[in-house]
Design a protein around this nucleic acid. Structure first.
Length: 171
DNA sequence: CCCTGATTCGC
DNA sequence: GCGAATCAGG
């Protein structure tokens, strides 16, 4: 019987259209239809002109592919030695203007970056990528970015470590 | 690392 | 036309 590779039959295309317009993702559709990869689905969607269900702001659509460039077969396989401009240290940001509820600060409440003040502990709490990210906000030790509690955590001396020295190698 | 869609290009 | 590879981004 029919065992040829399940190509884009009319039925499959219609199913694709329906699922796509229903908001299913490409991988979901691929799994639903079966026998095709999500790339195949995406490719088909584009060929059908169904792409761009949601118009994103500024046409800031995902993934662009500028120009891979095959790489010269003749050139020597040299080390890229790419320049790494990465900044040496992460600068902590602090608000220049006064926070919403300035003056009176609760002793121990977490603060947002907008509420963070010079004298507040900058110990990060939570996931910076989530909206509930906060800083400790307690009174920081003068001259240090952290409160007493977090300073102890941040600046742990190498003490209490010399005991129990096991024989690591020869001697 | 998981996921998303977009794009390119050899087939 | 097809879709793997590769990309950018959440």
């Amino acid at each position: 019987m029919m065992d040829a590779g399940p190509s884009w039959t009319k039925e499959r295309v219609e199913l694709l259209k329906r699922l796509w317009s229903d908001g299913h993702s490409a991988s979901q559709i691929a799994a639903e239809i079966g026998g095709v990869s999500r790339n195949a689905v995406i490719g088909k969607v584009h060929r059908l002109g169904l792409a761009g269900r949601v118009t994103k702001p500024n046409g800031a659509q995902a993934g662009r592919r500028p120009r891979p460039e095959p790489e010269s077969p003749v050139s020597v396989g040299g080390t890229p030695s790419v320049v790494a401009p990465a900044p040496p240290a992460l600068a902590l940001i602090q608000p220049a203007s006064a926070p919403p509820s300035a003056v009176a600060l609760p002793e121990s409440s977490r603060v947002t970056i907008m509420e963070l003040r010079d004298f507040m502990c900058r110990w990060p709490m939570g996931d910076p990528s989530t909206p509930d990210f906060r800083f400790c906000g307690d009174r920081a030790i003068t001259g240090l970015p952290y409160c007493t509690h977090h300073s102890r955590i941040a600046y742990q001396p190498a003490a209490e470590r010399k005991r129990d020295r096991k024989v690591v190698g020869f001697r």
